[in-house]
Nucleic acid binder design. Structure first.
Length: 405
RNA sequence: GGCCGGAUAGCAAAGCGGUUAUGCAGGGGCCUGCAAAGCCUUACAGACCAGUUCGAUUCUGGUUCCGGCCUCCA
């Protein structure tokens, strides 16, 4: 029985898909103006683990992860680089795919780009305006009227009045309310823009995810995920947009991955304390990074340090060493698997809100057993060793898959 | 200021109202010609103060400290 912690209820819940034949999951992906850092790596790896595990339970899982390829930072970076905006975004999309492969991550089933979804955004914005939930300011920008959505704040546990009290004095005098957020932004000269019913411009950040997720997975789907920092305001705003436009529940289960920290501080671009995946991979292999990420529970903070990466590498080496030179038939492996309950325990660990540290600890128990049996009963050692190889593949330590033992 | 999290042994990291987590590092022993790998064994925990309980690291309340969100961020 798979249980998932839902940010919406703040509880672990038994996961029951809307359609048991097909699970829909949307994860907020990258804004592509720079290389991915370790924080991105954590989200990528964890949702890879999650997708693989969901596929063990359900016949079909549709995993959609978007790419934000138009926004202020992208435009700014393109100007700085004197680079065409599409050349810039394509370059970093390629780099992202390279990083993913290095971490053993399966590509999502769909990877929609914001710039390909403008029509769907128009449709949603128009619906919101028609319903009186969105309005056009005097500067031409279209805003979402937060006060029109009664459940605003339900995901992040905030309420509008508290937010209002702490809000900084609005620079945006075109908004009716400081908390209103932009759906469509008028283009400045020389900026990339699309013709729209409200004037030439480009989409706000939040609307793209509402449009793309509903477009691929329907108005109501199972799982929506991303980094913890997206819960507010991004996901809160997505809920407001989607539920405001579609008059139905948007997402059942919200999942948020914790931060990667450095010296107990969030890794982020603004603090300039980030390490890119490819930078770290100059000194460590992708599989060790994957292990490092799985060594803590996905909702806990993960502290990035050389010591911890060395630790991950050493741990992984122990698992590799244990399987060295061992192999057995499928049936022999099945026999020990059932006798020692290993697969069931692995499944149970992952079923408990994707508890990868427990899953890993089970692999070490198995490794210990394998090592002990090498001296006593070689047949048993071979069977257990084969089981360890198979179990390890469950967590997608991919070298095992490529190795010929 | 408002709203959330967290505090576990030398380091990292989980579950659990009573019984070995796990990995790395440390002590002792074994194996090997030496080493590596491995096996056995051992020490080292639960921020602080109360409360509930026969019994709390695990539940409740308070204190201290740390982090996150409230602005772009995975």
């Amino acid at each position: 029985m798979l249980k998932i912690y839902n940010t919406l209820s703040k509880e672990k819940e038994v996961f029951q898909p809307i359609n048991p034949e097909k699970v829909g999951m949307y994860v907020c992906g990258m804004t592509v103006y720079d290389y991915c850092h370790m924080g991105h790596a954590r989200v990528l790896v964890m949702f890879d683990v999650i997708t693989r595990h969901l596929r063990r339970h359900f016949p079909q899982v549709e995993y959609v992860r978007n790419i934000t390829d138009i926004d202020d930072k992208i435009i700014q970076r393109a100007i700085e680089n004197k680079e065409d905006i599409y050349a810039l975004t394509n370059r970093f999309i390629d780099a992202m795919h390279e990083d993913e492969r290095a971490l053993g991550i399966l590509p999502p089933d769909a990877e929609p780009r914001a710039t390909d979804a403008i029509d769907q955004m128009f449709y949603m914005i128009k619906t919101l305006i028609d319903k009186g939930i969105a309005y056009q300011g005097e500067n031409g920008d279209v805003y979402y009227s937060v006060r029109q959505f009664k459940n605003y704040g339900k995901l992040s546990g905030k309420n509008i009045d508290d937010l209002e009290a702490g809000a900084r004095v609005g620079v945006e005098s075109n908004k009716k309310d400081p908390l209103d957020f932009v759906l469509w932004k008028m283009a400045k000269p020389n900026e990339p823009s699309w013709e729209s019913p409200w004037g030439d411009g480009r989409p706000g950040w939040h609307i793209e995810c509402s449009a793309m997720s509903c477009n691929h997975l329907g108005n109501h789907f199972d799982i929506h995920g991303g980094g913890m920092d997206l819960a507010f305001p991004h996901h809160e705003n997505e809920i407001a947009q989607s539920e405001g436009a579609n008059d139905c529940t948007f997402v059942n289960t919200w999942m948020h991955v914790g931060f990667v920290n450095i010296n107990n501080e969030k890794m982020s671009k603004s603090l300039d304390n980030f390490f890119t995946i490819r930078g770290v991979m100059e000194n460590y292999d992708g599989e060790s990074l994957r292990y490092f990420i799985m060594s803590s529970h996905y909702r806990s903070p993960l502290n990035f340090s050389d010591e911890n990466l060395d630790n991950a590498k050493a741990s992984l080496t122990r698992l590799y060493t244990a399987t060295r030179g061992l192999q057995a038939s499928e049936s022999a492996m099945e026999e020990v698997s059932q006798r020692f309950d290993f697969e069931a325990r692995m499944t149970a660990a992952l079923d408990d809100d994707f508890n990868t540290p427990i899953a890993l600890s089970i692999l070490f128990e198995l490794a210990k057993m394998v090592n002990a049996e090498r001296e006593k009963d070689l047949d048993q050692a071979n069977a257990l060793g084969q089981l360890l190889k198979n179990s390890v593949v469950t967590l997608a330590f991919y070298k095992w898959m490529q190795m010929n033992f």
